[in-house]
Design a protein around this nucleic acid. Sequence first.
DNA 1: CCAAAAGTGTTGGTCGTACACCCATGC
DNA 2: GCATGGGTGTACGACCAACACTTTTGG
Lengths: 236, 236
Amino acid sequence: MHGALEEDRLYVATDILILTVRDGRLCLLLSRRVDPPYAGRWALPGTFIGLDESAETAAKRLLAEMLPIQRAFLEQLFTFTDVNRDPRGRVISVAYLVVVPWERLKELMAEKDARFRCCQIAMDGNGLSLTDDWGGALIPGDLAFDHGRIIETGILRLRGKIDYTDIGFRFLNDPRAFSLGELQTVFEAVLGEPLDSSNFRRAIMSRYEKTGRLTQTDQAGRRGRGRPAALYRFNL
Amino acid sequence: MHGALEEDRLYVATDILILTVRDGRLCLLLSRRVDPPYAGRWALPGTFIGLDESAETAAKRLLAEMLPIQRAFLEQLFTFTDVNRDPRGRVISVAYLVVVPWERLKELMAEKDARFRCCQIAMDGNGLSLTDDWGGALIPGDLAFDHGRIIETGILRLRGKIDYTDIGFRFLNDPRAFSLGELQTVFEAVLGEPLDSSNFRRAIMSRYEKTGRLTQTDQAGRRGRGRPAALYRFNL
DNA sequence: CCAAAAGTGTTGGTCGTACACCCATGC
DNA sequence: GCATGGGTGTACGACCAACACTTTTGG
């Protein structure tokens, strides 16, 4: 489509930051680039925006091409416009933040194993760190373009919003039957720190129970060793 | 520069939302359009982004062309990309939020009176409302392009950030000598509701005094009738 | 001119809510 | 071992009350 970019033009692309929580770890979907620039390097999935689609439409189109998912959470993250962010020419990127349950993403990972990878991400005072499934560390500076910055921006946004929006529930494999322990695991993975389960339970309940969005089901889960957890249902 | 836009190209512009607090009211700088489309209608100041500048650079350039201000607060707000938002062709807009003290903005308003106007804005459950200096109501739907939506987005962002960033202090005419009453007026204008002065004082103090960013001066202000207020200094 | 009233700034207390931290109990 | 619930101390906002300092008002 854009084999060579013209010099006197400005192009607009979308990159999507697909996040999930797997085994209590915050993870991110990376795609290996096949063409230059940055051939062979890891990058966020991206696409150019067509003349007949909005940035959000383009992001949803790209997501749909990769995942058989409807109704995934998707919101605009930030627009990156540095003049030299793409060696091909002048390309700005409207980045989107996407949240997907791991059970859905797993299906994709099984198929297109070579091109995609789901990396653990962590961020503390020392900055970003990426770890693949076999414990190998990935240098954030090796990512294509300015995608390291995009990822940092996304994690900070996610952490800022998880306490006063329902974005945490979007990570749940089944919002119609989950335990508060699972939900707490999501919050801990996103925030990068352990939480007090007693306070967590009270906070979630006081925020959502009175509105009727969160209701307790009559079932109990038998997932682990200990006492079966009560299962809840959340209306997204 | 862009007398006619080509059909097969995508253009990128910047619109800036310049906010201030005047006489306890949140106000917004609007510019009257002279050329089509929307000739004669009110709009946010905007410009196209050049090939050699980032969106932020373009926004700062536009701001500098209008106001003799350095160091104004400026941050990216949102990127609006609807396909039909501009009748001339495909133009997306990276909107920026700017905060300017009224004393600075007043100087501009005195000069270029005809083209610019400083409107009071309010937003509640019924949506946005705009009022000019003589009490005339301005219909938000009469604004050019999708600028009504941009304004709403900006106010919501501002309200969300005022409690955990220093953005409120950017409205102060003189951050080196202000009373807590003045600061409270800013917060009330932004939030659109009155605050308890006792709690406000405690909250501001506990947040900033220990860090040393907010210090009490030895002066006292003599601005009004009542007891002179203690003056404070904030390090931006 | 002086005293009282009104207006604004400043400090303090109470009460309920929510969170941090710890502990007890059920399965 | 994990889920669930309770209890205590602390921090903060809503609401209220009192006091400090100045201008305005009314004799």
